[in-house]
Design a protein around this nucleic acid. Structure first.
Lengths: 144, 144
DNA sequence: CATGCTTTCTGGAACGGGTCAAGAAAACGA
DNA sequence: TCGTTTTCTTGACCCGTTCCAGAAAGCATG
């Protein structure tokens, strides 16, 4: 079975605390949530958690690989528990809604730039921009 | 011959002003410059230009397609005059240095996500993350 | 189960890139 | 040349995020 938050935290050497468990649980149920909505969800469950605690947890988990952070230009960062398979994302320009996309070209296309210019490349990030079903009618503004 | 800034501006219906010409000229010579360094370059040439003027020019040109804006997560936005060919970018995690990369798979790979989830996709953005030659020795901090 | 060292959480201030707003100035069609 | 419209200036402001110091937990020992 899938390891729970406690095991995951221990595995990467992070302390097991209520805020961390709550954050991981919430994100497992709500992928691509923003820091803000994670904070909301965690507070609904634990009562009161500081903004910094949430950011600390998110950063610590992202650093140790428990979470992946997606930062679409012009939108707040989003987090997901699905890590390690380098899948891509579909982002709505209007509301920022984010969905997973498996790569078209099989396993890992686009992973090697033709000319690396001396760079040590360690990741290829692919983002598809568009409008989600809810925002297709909206020309440039926020949805209702 | 390549059209100059004046022609480009007129073509898209923007007024021809000194700040605009200076911004376009500067960017033609310094691709992938940040708003900040554009402002510096423009001021060196024109004497004094407000920050807003620079942002206005950059936004207006990006909106009309004269410029392309790249916003790497965790780094200030960068601008380039090479538009319309949907090439990709190589970004240094440490210093933010950005280089052009032509796509490996010929013309336009990765352009169609396998499942669009009802989204109207209009752009595929590919970013390669790594460390530039100058920052390869630097573990996690800014370069000297 | 106590103890004490370390990591984490709290609360509040601060930061940086970028935008908004009101008025002055410059572009350009008539 | 004039008048309308767009653009530039100055200055305040916003939002997501991070920094700081101190208080409060976690957890490896005795």
């Amino acid at each position: 079975m899938t390891p729970g938050p406690r095991e995951l935290l221990k595995d990467v050497g992070l302390r097991v605390t209520a805020p961390r468990i709550a954050v991981l649980d919430w994100l497992a149920e709500h992928p691509h949530a923003t820091a803000d909505s994670v904070a909301e969800g965690v507070r609904a469950r634990l009562g009161s958690v500081s903004t910094q605690a949430v950011y600390d947890v998110l950063n610590a988990c992202a650093r140790t690989g428990l979470l992946r952070r997606i930062e679409p230009a012009g939108h707040p960062a989003r987090y997901e528990t699905r890590t390690g398979d380098n899948h891509h994302h579909l982002v709505c320009r209007v509301c920022g809604r984010t969905e997973d996309v498996d790569c078209v070209h099989g396993a890992a296309p686009c992973l090697e730039p033709s000319a690396a210019a001396g760079f040590a490349v360690d990741e290829a990030e692919v983002l598809f921009w568009g409008r989600c079903p809810d925002c297709r009618g909206t020309p440039k503004e926020q949805p209702a």
